Simulated assay, not measured.
Amino acid sequence: MIHAAFLTIIDQEKNMAHRPAHLEYLSRLFDQGKVIMAGPFTDGKGGLVLYKTETVEEARELAEQDPVVLHGARTLELREWKPLQFPIELA
């Protein structure tokens, strides 16, 4: 299962303070195969993390342990995502 975590910045000061730990956390999860992609939105208001987990509970636990979420720098919206398989065959 793939889950998209939308992380909106709500406290810029806390965000800057916890950003290094956030990036380290995501790198560690990437090495474990739990994060497949992540990055900031170009408007500077937050970012997106794609988690690959067996359950929504595991994805939520990982997302909630992200230092920027844990310390109240960003809100978390977690949604299951189903990527399209290309090429798409139209019947």
Rank of each mutant, 00 (worst) to 15 (best):
W81Q: 01
L50Y: 11
D31Q: 14
E61V: 03
H22D: 04
E24F: 00
P40N: 10
E64A: 10
E54S: 14
R28T: 14
G39D: 08
H18N: 13
A59D: 06
G72L: 05
K34S: 12
H3R: 02
I36Q: 12
K34P: 04
I88W: 14
W81Y: 15
Q32M: 15
V56I: 08
I2C: 02
Q12V: 13
L29D: 04
K34M: 10
P83N: 10
F41H: 11
E57K: 12
Y25L: 06
V49C: 01
L48M: 15
G72Q: 07
W81P: 04
K14P: 03
G33W: 11
Q12C: 00
R60C: 03
T8P: 00
R79S: 11
G39L: 10
Q32G: 04
P87N: 11
K52F: 02
T8Q: 10
S27F: 06
G72Y: 01
Q12E: 15
A59S: 08
V49S: 00
T55R: 10
P67W: 06
R28N: 11
I36G: 11
D11E: 09
Y25S: 06
G46A: 08
A17N: 08
L23E: 10
K14F: 05
E54M: 09
L78W: 02
A17F: 01
L90Q: 07
R74W: 00
V49L: 03
L76V: 06
E61Q: 12
T53Y: 03
D66T: 01
L48Q: 02
E54H: 07
L84C: 11
A17G: 00
A5P: 05
M16K: 15
E57Y: 07
L48V: 14
A38G: 07
T75V: 06
P83D: 09
L76W: 04
L29G: 07
R60I: 00
R74H: 02
K45E: 07
E13V: 13
V56D: 06
A17C: 01
A38F: 12
A4N: 11
I88D: 05
A17S: 08
I36R: 14
L23S: 06
R74V: 13
T55Y: 07
L90G: 00
E24G: 10
Q85V: 13
E61D: 11
L29C: 08
L50E: 02
K82Q: 13
T53S: 07
I2F: 15
R19M: 12
Y51N: 02
H22P: 00
F86I: 15
L23D: 01
M16C: 03
P67L: 09
